[in-house]
Write a protein that binds this DNA or RNA. Sequence first.
DNA 1: TATGAATGAGTGTTCATTCAT
DNA 2: AATGAATGAACACTCATTCAT
Lengths: 212, 212, 212, 212
Amino acid sequence: MRVVEEQPRARDANATRARILAAAKSEFARLGLAGARVDEIARHACANKRMIYHYFGGKEDLFRAVLVEAYLDIRNAEQELELGHLPPREALERLVRFTWAYYLDNPEFITLVNSANLHRGKHLEKSERLRTASRRFVSMVQEILDRGVADGVFRPGIDPVQLNITIAAIGYYYLTNRFTGTILFERDFMEDKALEDRLAFNIDTVLRLVLA
Amino acid sequence: MRVVEEQPRARDANATRARILAAAKSEFARLGLAGARVDEIARHACANKRMIYHYFGGKEDLFRAVLVEAYLDIRNAEQELELGHLPPREALERLVRFTWAYYLDNPEFITLVNSANLHRGKHLEKSERLRTASRRFVSMVQEILDRGVADGVFRPGIDPVQLNITIAAIGYYYLTNRFTGTILFERDFMEDKALEDRLAFNIDTVLRLVLA
Amino acid sequence: MRVVEEQPRARDANATRARILAAAKSEFARLGLAGARVDEIARHACANKRMIYHYFGGKEDLFRAVLVEAYLDIRNAEQELELGHLPPREALERLVRFTWAYYLDNPEFITLVNSANLHRGKHLEKSERLRTASRRFVSMVQEILDRGVADGVFRPGIDPVQLNITIAAIGYYYLTNRFTGTILFERDFMEDKALEDRLAFNIDTVLRLVLA
Amino acid sequence: MRVVEEQPRARDANATRARILAAAKSEFARLGLAGARVDEIARHACANKRMIYHYFGGKEDLFRAVLVEAYLDIRNAEQELELGHLPPREALERLVRFTWAYYLDNPEFITLVNSANLHRGKHLEKSERLRTASRRFVSMVQEILDRGVADGVFRPGIDPVQLNITIAAIGYYYLTNRFTGTILFERDFMEDKALEDRLAFNIDTVLRLVLA
DNA sequence: TATGAATGAGTGTTCATTCAT
DNA sequence: AATGAATGAACACTCATTCAT
């Protein structure tokens, strides 16, 4: 009988790199670029701090890597939606639901993006892979809009980039500002009912915006 | 005999406090809570570092004070709109325009709010003044909606908080994420035409959402 | 009766600065720029490490300050020799003796100069005070040579810079390389007799070089 | 049957050792013992860092090996001069020229010796080969002096060790301190004319010292 | 013989904060 | 009210060295 050996998990460059990246994503999301601590990242990655510098070069480069990965992740998830197979209205609604769910399931994404923008986007420059993925995404939405117009269900002339921004905005803003929102508006932004209500409101907003 | 006069206002507590607060707002907005430096704040405030501790207690307390002031400022500005004197549709459009303009004119506000939420809102807790101001603001929007429904121009059943959030979201998100947006979508988010287009798109979004 | 109070020695910026400079001179001389430790310098200066950065900017800037001070010290000491009042031959002999004694009494000077040159002199650039002091020194030697030639005791045509270099060299080299010298030549370079012999040899060398 | 041959010299212990030694000499000379980096030495040697520890034991042991090699190199070169075949005066002049040329051609030698002495010679202790080579060298100079005295061209009573030290000193000091010298004396120590002048001055110095 | 991965102790530097006046 | 000096803990980053293969 052959026993499946536990992999020693040591001396595995790729695994170490991945552990560091995951830990970094979590720390940067939680505390921002300036607030995150390289020591903590190493500790959470069960890695030596030196490895971070070996694999990524430095704190800012690690942040860069985390950001690119975060964006590629969401763009990949969007592609897997296969919205092209759905009627336009359903496709759009599904996109709104997906965006909302993605933000809820990947809360780090939002704070990472905020951090990237706090630093004026300088950690995201010149990533061609990202631009390609973004272009593909915009095309996808454009195609849904085109089909909707052809079917007579959507009104013509809607800019897919503006629509994308709005779809993202109405989910993103609610979630990123949930803490101040909860305090100022004296309602719990994160209880189930509130989340359901917001999603319904957002779907309504988007559909009213595009329907003929 | 003429006594050499003390220079007037050389030791003006209120002025020093205000200079510190202004410098802190700028630094916290630019670099976040963790990224801002107490030394720099003191330097920009033309104040001694010790004064920060004297007037505000510490870095986090200073951040707290900055946040509260920032929120009171926007709520005050909103009150001065006097939307009650306008027909509902005009009032709403004016609110959208105001919100957009406020974000554009006070870019620190956005990053301060982001920072507050990165830290899970803990610097904004228990400010009764803020809650009062927020309540007044929600009432104002509620009143506009009520008048619109009464006039038959708005459809009924719209939650004023959700509407507020959406009005804020569609402007806020565009501006806070303008750096990553510019990179990913390969268009300059801040050029005049782009800003105009976004504002028009947002007004359209809101009106389609509420009109009967 | 009035008791002379001990100065508290705290809160005295100049004293702290001086203590740091002295400790730094000792550490840099002992271990070189790369080998010296900022922590140790602070410890020996009975100062907080932070003060080093406050007063000097950083390790390399501190090294710079140490170097300039070391050179100004020797140039000042040279000026105090008042060689102009002595007959040329005595003046020159006195300069050789002084140079030798200075190296013996200030062994840090030699290793500091070595370190400065290991780093290709980049920490000594653009110090006008130093250049001025050097010029004055060369003039002084030139004047001794001129008087000697006029008196018929020195031969003409001797370059004062070359002479200076040689006077320094024959003392400096013996002392800076005393450790390897002791090992290679199997004689103790630092015992009294050896030091006396070397000084006599050097005086002889210089006089034979310049005497008519 | 033909066996696939191992690539020749792919694993050449001597070659690897030699490459490491050469790289180390360069790095230690350039940056000193504390400033040199084991990683850089390995990189320049096109060797794995581990090899340094395998062949030499550690950084300090490597420094030791570099030093011994450097001294053996110069002593070997000196032996090849065959000064015994020349008349005493020519032999001595040739030694001065050789020493000067060696320092110029092997600038690492000077900084390595400086580093060795900064560390108080502890890396050079107990090398019998070196002591033997040194003894042979001193004997050679002694023999030149003896022949010169016998010929009546040199004065008697000159200590060969002192003479050696002076010959080395007047070249060594000029070159090791060329950076600070250039700055302080405002003349380029390394331009051709300056080097020629210095050599001539040094030959003159030595001859005046020994000639009867 | 050779190597890439990994490490812990340090290394220069920075920070928010407090002290003494 | 205001200040410059001082501090200790922490920070990003580096190093010589060892491990596992």
